[in-house]
Design a protein around this nucleic acid. Structure first.
Lengths: 242, 242
DNA sequence: AAGTGGTCTAGACCACGTA
DNA sequence: ACGTGGTCTAGACCACTTG
């Protein structure tokens, strides 16, 4: 099981990988408690400190959550996490709230070459394409275009298009067992097209903030492409550099 | 020195604060080695593991850098750090390089009300204002407007305006003992003014990416305001969410 | 009271860099 | 050879949550 050979990687690293593998395999679902540190230490034949070090690094990566006196749990995608971890738009007064979403269309299609490449799919794979508009206080502010591998999200949206929840990442996790752990975003300033201008109620050519996100699972598999175009007249994208 | 009372915070936290205080005070300068873990443990009357835990958290915060077999050092602002930690603009082909900078003007003035508030200065304090343009391959791409408290950066730029290095954070650290540890950025898309359009060689009203940064020291004191307006026709702002 | 994570110790041995 | 950080152990006690 665990290797203590001279050339092998450290025990706590092996334990980390083992835990990640078991979570990825679904042994423990988001929200479940994993065995206690002492229990794991006995099972694996190492000391508690070694298990603890492995768990500590997974807590730092947001994979696990410790609760003193209760146990260690697989992290979930609650509203909190969606809001503070993956949603970076705030109002000019500093207030942060999730906007209301309404779906403009939801359809299946063949992936474009660029989409297939970014999602690591074979050329011509089927994808689900969602376009939705997000409003703060009734004011349309963000236009989102989302692309998902159809294979991974089978049946999504087939029960009526408008039935999607506001926080999609909760849905991915609950219904499809897919947990988004990382994302990389590319931001540009672009001019609004005629259609975008109409939908976002701005002048054609007005400056919009474009955010291209690739969302990844724990194993770094890309599973969602999301392009947002955002009217930043009364909102901004915030980023903290540590 | 260290308190082991019941109500007090944990030993390793106290050690962390002590180390931060000594670094802030200049006991060890950036690039210096701090005493070894064993040495510190003896001095403080705790075990190596406790010192180690304190140091580990400071390494994660980029305050210290460990080098196996050599020691633990106060982090420095080398080019690497400037490039990968605080500079988030990359070319469309993914290449990342620091642009060349040229100063448009450097002057002293009274802080505006907003500037004073953001820098936590008393109203009407003197500030240094730098405007510079940054070019990738001769193409003007970023217009930067920088505001610094004059008190902290005495004498900056008085030896000829154009003499500033490309990576200012290195200068702040080397010449003024000020190390930038954190920054918070607010991004918007804005239309180019006439002047900006001329300088950046774009059409007036063209969409520019505006980045407002507040840079902070280890003690979370704001010491620099930087507003960048960036032509994102061939570049983008990248952000990774963990 | 029992079980969990959180802190801390004292010591062992390994891997690495320097002299 | 020596000193540094890096890993690991076995055990202690504390703080918190739950039955």
């Amino acid at each position: 099981m665990l290797s203590t050979d001279k050339g092998s990687i450290s025990l706590y690293m092996q334990i980390k990988e083992l835990l990640v593998a078991r979570i990825g395999r679904g042994d423990w679902l988001p929200g479940d408690a994993i065995p206690s540190e002492i229990q794991l230490a006995q099972d694996l034949g190492v000391s508690q400190g070694t298990v603890r070090k492995a768990i500590t690094e997974l807590v730092e990566k947001n994979v696990l959550t410790r609760k003193q006196g209760r146990g260690t749990f697989v992290s979930t995608h609650d509203q909190e996490r969606a809001l503070f971890h993956f949603f970076h738009i705030a109002a000019d007064d500093g207030q942060k709230a999730l906007p209301q979403s309404s779906v403009l269309h939801l359809r299946r299609k063949a992936a474009s070459r660029a989409e297939a490449a970014k999602l690591h799919l074979p050329g011509g794979s089927r994808v689900i394409n969602i376009e939705r508009i997000r409003r703060f206080d009734e004011r349309p502010t963000i236009l989102e275009n989302i692309v998902l591998p159809a294979e991974l999200f089978e049946g999504l949206g087939l029960d009526g298009e408008g039935n999607l929840p506001n926080t999609l990442y909760e849905l991915y996790q609950r219904e499809y067992g897919i947990t988004i752990h990382r994302a990389s975003e590319c931001l540009k300033a672009v001019g609004a097209s005629e259609r975008e201008a109409t939908l976002l109620e701005v002048a054609p050519g007005a400056a919009l903030l474009q955010i291209e996100r690739i969302a990844l699972t724990l194993e770094d598999t890309p599973v969602e492409l999301r392009t947002s175009r955002c009217n930043t007249a009364h909102h901004f994208y915030e980023n903290t550099i540590f």
